[in-house]
Simulated scan of single mutants.
Amino acid sequence: MARKKKSTHLGTPALRALNDAGVEYELFEYEHSPVMDHGYALDTSAVLGIEPQYIFKTLLTECDGESVVAVVPASSQLNLKALAKAADAKAASMMDPSKAEKITGYVTGGISPLGQRSTLRTFIDESALELDMILVSGGKRNLSVRLGAQDLAEAINAQFAIIQTGQNRKSTALN
């Protein structure tokens, strides 16, 4: 069963980044299912009993050779063409997981948009703005944080854009 805790410990770079930015958040620590058929983000949704549109996965991409972070709901897929357009690039592709681990300092399944080794351009799907709170990785497997989408964007200097499949609304940038 999932355990939910509020914590102020500084265990991961992601949590340190949130604390340094003064962002309010709630910490969720849990165990993933023994068999994950749909990946970490959807398993987090199932284990915590939270709808997948509230769980956001962090994906590492390359846009014209630049490392770019995309944050999209677990319930959707990243639209690489839309991400390339948002990043003013000609093309985007998914980054090899081992390269993503090296660049971010996190392991696959625990990559957070917060506290990465270097500051990368980050795009959060605009659907996050419609939600009171979202969950993102807290910097390791089995650890997530719930926070406001605007708080996340401000903490990592991210932009909002339509980057998931199936959306047709106008994008907005946070600067």
Rank of each mutant, 00 (worst) to 15 (best):
N79R: 07
T108E: 08
S67I: 15
Q77M: 11
V68T: 06
V72P: 07
A84L: 05
K99L: 04
M94A: 09
P97Q: 07
T119H: 10
V72D: 03
K102P: 00
K81S: 15
M94N: 08
R121D: 04
P73D: 00
A89Q: 08
S98H: 10
Q116K: 14
A70L: 13
K99I: 02
M95Y: 04
K99P: 08
N79H: 01
E66C: 02
S75L: 08
V68C: 00
N79P: 06
P113C: 13
K99G: 01
K102M: 12
E101A: 10
S118V: 06
T119Y: 04
K90E: 15
R117K: 15
Y106E: 11
L114T: 15
T104F: 14
A92T: 04
M94D: 07
S76F: 00
S112R: 12
P73R: 07
V68G: 05
P97N: 06
A84Q: 08
M95C: 03
L78P: 04
A74R: 03
S76W: 00
M95E: 01
A82F: 02
A92H: 11
K85F: 00
R121N: 01
S112E: 09
M94V: 13
S118N: 13
I124T: 12
G65W: 04
G115P: 12
A87F: 01
K102G: 08
I103R: 02
A89W: 00
A82R: 03
D88E: 10
N79G: 06
G65Y: 06
D125V: 03
R121Y: 07
V72R: 06
E126P: 05
T119N: 06
A87S: 10
P97Y: 10
S93M: 15
K85D: 02
L114W: 13
S118W: 09
K85Y: 01
G110L: 01
K90H: 13
Y106C: 10
M94G: 02
V68L: 03
G65F: 05
S118G: 09
I103C: 03
A100Q: 10
G109R: 01
A92E: 10
L83Q: 00
T122F: 09
V72K: 05
P113F: 14
I103S: 04
T108Y: 10
I103W: 03
G115R: 09
D88Y: 11
I124H: 11
A86Y: 05
S93W: 06
K99N: 09
V68Q: 01
A92G: 12
G110D: 06
T119L: 01
E126I: 15
N79M: 01
S98W: 05
T119G: 06
L78Y: 01
A91M: 11
L114C: 13
L114G: 09
A100V: 14
D125M: 01
T119C: 02
S118Y: 11
A87K: 09
Q77R: 13
L80W: 12
P73Y: 07
V107I: 12
L114I: 12
Q116L: 11
T108P: 02
L114H: 13
Q116D: 07
K90G: 14
A70C: 14
N79D: 11
R121M: 02
V71N: 10
G65P: 10
T104N: 11
P97C: 02
P97E: 03
G105W: 13
M95S: 04
K85R: 07
R121F: 03
P113H: 14
S98Y: 10
Y106W: 13
A74Q: 05
A70D: 12
V72W: 00
V69Q: 05
K90C: 09
D125Q: 05
S127T: 03
S93Y: 09
E126Q: 13
V72G: 03
